[in-house]
């Protein structure tokens, strides 16, 4: 058993590195799972993908030279998610950034507050957004990431994080105010 490991011993981390990984990276497992959950829209698949991403992070750990461990891990989680989507749900993965900016329906903060307090409705609205919009919202509103971190995780230039968020929020508002039936065509 020990003999078979010798060939790749250079990739295998030792006990000290393992301890460092536990201290720096593993505390962000919740963040990893939450991001995967919203990108894949499934708890079950997210468990597999989060696990794969953490192990991948472990293998790459020698390449991590300090800094923001959460952003570093989430970047790997995001890549793992998109690779998984490409393989398992190719149609969904093709949905691209929708650059259009429609004038919004006039919406009062009160009506939005009511719609926004309904967990089911919010969750469904968020899930109807294309993944690229969904991820910036999840990172900003649920994970509390800064623009700099969002840029690092999603590989979009920091100058465009603000406009990506603006578009994502507009899309979410629209999804919240439209009748749920039209917004959920994939529920068959």
């Amino acid at each position: 058993m020990s003999g078979s490991d010798q060939g790749r011993s250079s990739d295998v981390l030792d006990v000290d590195e393992r301890a460092r990984f536990e201290q720096l990276v593993l505390p962000h497992l919740d963040a990893a799972f939450n991001l995967a959950r919203w990108l894949l829209r499934s708890r079950e698949d997210s468990e597999d993908v989060a696990q794969e991403a953490v192990l991948r992070a472990y293998r790459f750990f020698r390449g991590f030279h300090g800094g923001d461990a959460r952003a570093w891990l989430l970047q790997i989680v995001r890549n793992t998610c998109y690779t998984w989507l490409e393989k398992n749900r190719p149609v969904e993965h093709m949905t691209e950034f929708d650059e259009e900016l429609h004038p919004q329906p006039s919406l009062s903060p009160e009506s939005l507050a009511i719609a926004g307090d309904n967990r089911e409705r919010l969750s469904r609205a968020l899930e109807t957004l294309p993944p690229r919009f969904r991820e910036v919202l999840v990172l900003r509103e649920l994970e509390g990431c800064s623009y700099k971190e969002i840029a690092a995780i999603t590989a979009i230039p920091i100058g465009t994080v603000m406009s990506a968020l603006a578009r994502a929020r507009q899309r979410l508002q629209r999804a919240l105010t439209q009748p749920p039936v039209q917004e959920a065509p994939r529920e068959l």
């Binding site: 497992l29 919740d30 799972f33 939450n34 959950r37 919203w38 708890r43 997210s46 468990e47 989060a50 903060p109 009160e110 939005l112 507050a113 719609a115 926004g116 307090d117 309904n118 967990r119 919010l122 969750s123 968020l126 919202l137 509103e141 649920l142 929020r169 979410l172 508002q173 919240l176």
Partner: peptide, 15 residues
């Protein structure tokens, strides 16, 4: 209001 809704609704999912 939208942000408050997102943050209050317990959308964060734990493994």
């Amino acid at each position: 209001a939208l942000r408050a809704g997102l943050q209050r609704s317990g959308l964060y999912e734990h493994p």
